[in-house]
């Protein structure tokens, strides 16, 4: 994987080109560029409706130097199924340009709304059918493109425009849907979490997921300056805090002999080895305006304790799975 060194990757042209209309500090652009850096050759991309799609494809302009298709919001995985089936059919029949490539990789990008909520059925179906594609979940924890409405991915207490923190309700009162566990339960060959603060980890996991036959899933946490309410230059810092506080651990799952094998990636592994290095969730929460109400006018100790306990519990469960 020497071609995946930072030095070599820097030489590889960006397939998501400059000039796209994403916000300053948008983490989606960083993750997508890194994912595309990890492609091994001919690739077809399908994209759900959302920030990434609208900001990169305003006709007659495009930011994509790969064959790219957007169809609708909830059907990214189904569209990918069709593309993959077409590739298979053409190769079998040795017909058309797609049959001339030894391998064409299919990548699907969708946000949390398009994955946890409206696109969930199509995604589950496509994984169950075993199509050979890599699904990249760009999780910014709300419907950002439509103006920061809560989704199934929005964390407990986060304030959004449809779960606003008010005088009696402190933001979203439901917890984040455990999408990782749900996806892993499908028994797919590879699953991993991604964080732009560790770019090489993103690239290596992406390459691995592309090389593995069958459906693979990458869950990227993508802080959103507008929706999470923090200064644009803090994106990577906050992204890093998500791992350091263990609210979004970095790990991967392979199925071997029908069993899911969980493995912590090095940033989370080092916390597992040195538990004292795990930072309090408050560090993460107080850096973002969407959690302001937990600290002002006075600190909501009860809710903060509840959040910390929930992070601890989920981290412990993951450690168990990883053999700690």
């Amino acid at each position: 994987m020497s071609e995946l060194s930072l030095k070599e990757l820097a030489k590889k042209p960006d397939l998501l080109c400059p000039g796209a209309r994403l916000c300053a500090g948008c983490d989606e652009a960083i993750i997508v560029r890194l994912v595309l850096k990890a492609t091994r050759g001919p690739t077809i991309v399908t994209n759900a409706t959302g920030c990434l799609e609208v900001a990169t494809s305003s006709f007659p302009y495009t930011a994509w130097d790969v064959p790219w298709i957007h169809s609708a919001f909830e059907n990214t995985a189904a569209t990918a199924s069709g593309i993959e089936a077409a590739i298979k059919a053409m190769k079998k029949r040795k017909e058309g340009p797609l049959s001339t490539f030894e391998k064409i990789d299919v990548l699907a990008f969708a946000g949390d709304g398009g994955t946890y909520d409206i696109g969930f059925q199509a995604l589950s179906g496509a994984i169950e059918r075993g199509h050979d594609f890599t699904y990249v979940l760009l999780d910014n924890e709300a419907y950002m493109n439509t103006g920061i409405q809560r989704s199934g991915a929005t964390p407990f207490t986060a304030s959004t425009t449809t779960s606003p923190a008010g005088k009696v309700i402190s933001g979203k009162m439901e917890t984040k849907k455990p999408i990782d566990e749900i996806i892993i339960a499908h028994g797919l060959p590879y699953f991993a979490t991604l964080n732009a603060a560790w770019p090489l980890d993103v690239v290596k996991k992406t390459r691995k997921s592309i090389e593995i036959e069958g459906p693979t899933f990458l869950h990227a946490i993508v802080p959103c300056s507008r929706g999470w309410r923090y200064p644009a230059e803090k994106t990577i810092e906050i992204s890093r805090l998500a791992v350091q506080t263990c609210v979004f651990p970095l790990y991967e799952v392979n199925y071997q002999n029908g069993r899911p094998i969980y493995k912590l990636s090095s940033p989370s592994l080092s916390i597992a080895k040195r538990p004292e290095s795990k930072r309090p969730i408050e560090d993460y929460l107080k850096s973002q305006g969407r959690f302001n109400h937990l600290f002002r006018p006075e600190k909501n100790v009860k809710l903060l304790e509840q959040i910390q306990e929930s992070v601890n519990l989920k981290w412990e469960i993951l450690l168990d799975k990883c053999g700690f």
Binding site: S81, G82, A85, A89, R129
Partner: peptide
Amino acid sequence: DSEFVAVESEHSALSACVGASASGARA
């Protein structure tokens, strides 16, 4: 020797057809 995709809904049936057709397939 068609690729038969037994999808999980009609919404996905037509979506898969769009993806396949856009890839140059008869769908």
